[in-house]
């Protein structure tokens, strides 16, 4: 597996913590445990700047509930599946844009794809960088894949 620079690790961790705090009022902290991921629907977005990245977001059902309910200020059961997916995709959209700026700065033209729902996620052994987080007791995982 590639070694990730400390600066890049800090950029990813800071971006994740700040985005979830500001958008979803959720305390998300880097975790030393190795989260399980890929067991349910995840999300992905392409980010292009100095290099091409694909960023995956995975979280437990309970974490999804917390994010969506905090943003909507409404119960999960009151929301449609479209509203729920849109909410989770939007947080990835914000995360992707913020991450591009954190990694490469504002001098680099960063292009963001459209976030999408994915059912297949890369695994830990697939040459990707896995960032494990704890979202108020629930696993939340960000996976960065370099695409040249």
């Amino acid at each position: 597996m590639e070694v990730i620079a400390e600066r890049e690790r800090t950029a990813v961790e800071t971006t994740v913590m700040e985005t979830f705090a500001e958008m979803a009022f959720l305390d998300v902290m880097p975790s030393n445990s190795k989260n399980e991921f890929g067991t349910s629907q995840g999300f992905a977005v392409n980010i292009a700047g100095n290099e091409r990245l694909r960023c995956y977001l995975d979280m437990s059902i309970a974490a999804k509930h917390a994010v969506v309910e905090n943003i909507h200020a409404d119960a999960w059961t009151e929301l449609s599946s479209e509203e729920i997916d849109d909410c989770l995709l939007e947080i990835l959209n914000v995360l992707g844009g913020t991450l591009g700026r954190a990694l490469w700065g504002e001098a680099v033209r960063c292009k963001l794809g459209f976030p999408e729902v994915v059912v297949m996620m890369p695994g830990r052994g697939d040459g990707v960088h896995v960032f494990d987080f704890d979202a108020e007791g629930e696993p939340l995982t960000v996976i960065m894949e370099r695409r040249g």
Binding site: V94, G96, G97, G100, R101, E106, A107, R109, C110, L112
Partner: peptide, 10 residues
Amino acid sequence: LSSMKNDALK
């Protein structure tokens, strides 16, 4: 209002 912010876009 955008998640992207860079000098070229601005």
